[in-house]
Amino acid sequence: MPVSLHPSPIETPVSLLHAQSLESTIQLHLEACLSWTPSQPNAQPLWSAVRAAATNYMMSLFTQGKLLGTSPSQAFFVKCDQTTTTQVDIDHSIANLLVGFASTKPAEFSTIRLALHTAAPNL
C-alpha cells in the first residue's frame, strides 16, 4: 500500500484548511488585481501603486474580521520597494511583492511572495 506524504482531506485539521484557503484566496485576488503591471516601468511609482492596491485589499480583509490583530499593523504588512526588488529583478522586469498576514485560524503569520512582471527596462 503506497504511503502518502500529504494528509487526506479527512486528516487535515479544519483550521489548516481555512489558512490554506485564505492564503490561496489572497494570492489569487492579488494576481488578478495586479494584472496591469506588465505595462508599467519597474520603478517607485509602480511599487507605490502595487502597495496601495495590496494594502487596500488586505485592509478590507482586516475590517471583515478575516485577519487576526487589533490593528492593521498587527494583522498584515505589504512590501514592494527597493528592499524586495533588486536591480537584478528590475533588469529582468520583475517587481517583488511581499504580503504577510495573521490568519485567525490557526493563529499564525503567513507570507505570500509574488513576482510581478513589468515593462522591459529601457536600455
Rank of each mutant, 00 (worst) to 15 (best):
P72H: 04
L123M: 00
S35M: 08
F109M: 08
S103A: 15
V3I: 13
S21V: 00
P41D: 05
I26E: 01
A52C: 01
Q20S: 04
A53Y: 05
F109I: 12
E11D: 11
A43I: 05
Q44I: 08
V99Y: 04
F76W: 02
V50H: 06
I112N: 09
H117Q: 15
N42R: 07
T12Q: 09
P9Y: 00
P13Y: 02
V99T: 08
A32T: 13
N56W: 00
M1S: 12
I112T: 09
V78Y: 04
F101S: 04
F109Q: 13
V99W: 00
N96Q: 14
T63F: 10
H29D: 09
I94D: 07
F62K: 08
A119V: 02
G69A: 09
D89P: 03
S15P: 01
S35K: 12
H117W: 08
L17M: 13
S21A: 13
T118P: 06
K79P: 05
S8E: 05
E31S: 15
S93H: 11
V14M: 14
E31D: 14
V88R: 11
T85E: 06
W47T: 03
L34H: 07
P72R: 03
A102I: 03
L5Y: 08
Y57L: 07
Q20D: 01
I90P: 03
R113N: 14
P121E: 10
I26M: 03
S110A: 05
T12C: 05
G69Q: 08
M1C: 13
L61S: 10
E108V: 09
T55N: 13
E23T: 14
S71F: 05
S48A: 14
T55C: 09
I90Q: 12
N56G: 13
Q20N: 11
V99N: 03
G100S: 09
Y57F: 13
A43H: 12
L67A: 04
T118Y: 06
L17A: 15
L46C: 00
S48C: 05
G65F: 00
T104V: 15
R51K: 15
F76K: 00
W47H: 07
G100F: 00
L17T: 10
I112Y: 00
F76L: 02
A32L: 10
C33K: 12
S15F: 01
P38M: 06
H92F: 03
H18W: 02
I10G: 07
L114G: 03
L46Y: 05
H29Q: 13
L123W: 09
H6S: 14
L46T: 02
F62V: 07
T37C: 15
L22Q: 08
Q82I: 06
S48F: 10
V50N: 05
L114N: 06
E108K: 13
R51D: 06
T63G: 08
R51L: 01
F62G: 04
S73C: 06
G65L: 03
P2T: 09
A52H: 06
G65R: 03
